[in-house]
Design a protein around this nucleic acid. Structure first.
Lengths: 121, 121, 121, 121
DNA sequence: GTGGTCTAGACCACT
DNA sequence: GTGGTCTAGACCACC
């Protein structure tokens, strides 16, 4: 796991992204129970309050839900997960496009490059 | 400038990447003189020795060259710069592909997604 | 061993030469493990960083290779060692020629002299 | 001039070699007057006593001679100079042979190498 | 224990 | 002022 915290972005946002990533990559599956806030905080090397905030935000977004006495679970709403996947894929791709355009490539070149690498992979 | 140093990767490697980025994005153009090692080190908030090492490696790679007492310059070898651009674009795209495949997308989906975003952009 | 450091040439270059010499003379054989950076540094009476730089350069040249946590070893690439031997022999001979020509001998005389000494040895 | 003093060998011997070299290379010619001991000592960065000892030894060997009131001169005995030249050339060559044999070359290989380099030069 | 990295601070030659 | 080298001393990950 890459709990690799960066500067300048609030830590709880970074934690949210890592957890979303873990959900999308299948580490935590739809309906799975999460480890406790305390455990997650230790694993990430952050204060439990920070991890708590991250999870609360994820709950607000509908990605996780809480069963009062038994813990937190990944949402079983498949549309929600699909939407999440789309959002994250979109932001990865946007980041790529931004990076490559900063390097002076235009859209056509970028597309050609991506095609070439996917075919050749 | 985003001298945004991350953990777990040697700082001098990250400095190399930032400088390469600056060259490719046109901040430093072919033939341009760099700021002195000391200035760059201050700007990046690292020890001059570390910046020195980064620049020495870039010189080994042929991306910059040194005129003993007058400073460092971006190479004027256009092929070298093109090769560099290709390498970096390739590694960005590879990273994207890896991320998206970890999320369960297959190559066809990735390509369709990228196409959609580039067209619609 | 003659860790006999001279002026005016960077120490790390001199260290590289001594180590190359040690390899060619059989003190360290192909595949042999080197003493640790620290030991070599102590033996040579230099700072470990300086020895480290010398060894890193030798690694770049392909003469030694590193196994992360277990030490440094002499390359097992025999061609590389042969190439090294040729280079060093060539530079010794060139130095001889330069010295003798400064003394007013011409090429024919030098060759005759060398022949005489090798035969008579 | 390379007044490049080495450790472990007495300085006066090294000075003798440098001066012999200067004579053989034509810096000081047969019959020439030398600079004063004091000047030579300053140039070499050594104590005048040390330079004095070097010159006294060279005088004992017959390579220089002293005219009591007017200074030191290079010998005009051409046989002496020839002998000196032979000695030094011989020791250079012997050093070469030693070095190359330490590297595992045999006499035939050394000779072939020297021939190749003299021809090709 | 190993190699590797980093900092702080210094000195050098060059021009 | 520039790049380059060197030292002293520290910390890290790996096994």
């Amino acid at each position: 796991m890459g709990w690799n915290l960066d500067a300048d972005k609030p830590i709880y946002l970074q934690l949210m992204e890592y957890i979303q990533q873990d959900i999308l990559s299948g580490r935590y599956k739809s309906g799975d129970k999460f480890p406790s806030v305390r455990e997650l905080a230790i694993e990430a090397g952050v204060n439990p309050n920070t991890m708590q905030k991250a999870l609360a935000e994820l709950e607000r977004e509908g990605i996780v839900y809480t069963m009062r006495t038994s813990g937190r679970f990944v949402t079983e709403d498949q549309d929600m997960l699909k939407k999440l996947k789309k959002e994250r894929a979109g932001s990865y791709i946007q980041e790529l496009i931004d990076n490559l355009m900063k390097m002076g490539l235009d859209k056509k070149e970028i597309l050609a490059f991506v095609e070439a690498m996917i075919e050749g992979d």
